[in-house]
Each structure stands twice: as C-alpha cells, then as structure tokens.
C-alpha cells in the first residue's frame, strides 16, 4: 500500500492519492492549505490520468511498432501540468505538486517505489 503520508513530504506536495483501474479515487491526503482541492476534484483528476495513460499506451504501442524506437511502452505514468500545480501519477498512485517547488524526477522515483498497491 502506498504510504500517502510519506508522499506528502515531497517538495511542494499538495495532495497524495491512490486510485483503481477505472480511475476511481481510493485513498487520499490533502495538505493543509491546499485550497480548492477536495475528494471530488481528486477523483476527476484520477479519471483524467487513467484516460490519458490509456491514450498514451495506444500511442506508445503505435509509435514503437512504427519507428522501432522502444522505451515508451508500457507507459509508467502520466502527468498533468496545470497553471500552478501539477498532478503526477505512476501505477495507481499520484501526487499533486506546486510547480515552483516540484522536483518531478524525485516525485517519479518516489511514486515508482510506492506506486503499486
């Protein structure tokens, strides 16, 4: 099980969450002061990430077969970059990070280590 409290320690973390294959939110933590975020927003965000991971998987499949350039498939994570915050997912786990403070590489490493429930 992903340790959401530990993910919330990532630089700039505003929320950490897990979701199922359909994109339904399972567990979540929201950092103090993360205005505008609630379970409804996170649930929609999870659906968005699952949908785009599926699209990216199709693209990676097509791209690799067509170009022979392997290394995209299977898609490990999808990230959405918003105006001030980003949402990164890996497997069934994700975080919302403030763009100005985010360390995306560290976040992906942390998610990869904890991402699969």
């Amino acid at each position: 099980m992903a340790d959401l409290d530990a993910l919330l320690e990532l630089p700039g973390a505003r929320a950490a969450f897990t979701f199922n294959d359909r994109g339904e939110l399972r567990e979540h933590r929201i950092a103090e002061g993360a205005e505008g975020l609630d379970a409804t927003v996170l649930d929609l965000l999870c659906h968005m990430c699952v949908a785009n991971t599926a699209i990216a998987t199709m693209q990676a499949r097509g791209w690799e077969r067509m170009t022979g350039m392997e290394g995209f498939y299977p898609i490990e994570g999808f990230g959405f970059v918003g105006l001030e915050w980003s949402a990164l997912t890996h497997g069934h786990c994700g975080v919302v990070l403030a763009n100005d403070e985010a360390d995306y590489e560290a976040a992906y490493r942390a998610l990869a280590a904890r991402g699969e429930p």
Binding site: P74, F80, V81
Partner: peptide, 11 residues
C-alpha cells in the same frame, strides 16, 4: 491546463 508529461521506461 499548461501541459502534460508521459513517462515510459526509457523515455
């Protein structure tokens, strides 16, 4: 939205 990131094993 400003953008997006897709991460594969190598790229």
């Amino acid at each position: 939205a400003r953008g997006w990131v897709v991460r594969g094993p190598r790229f």
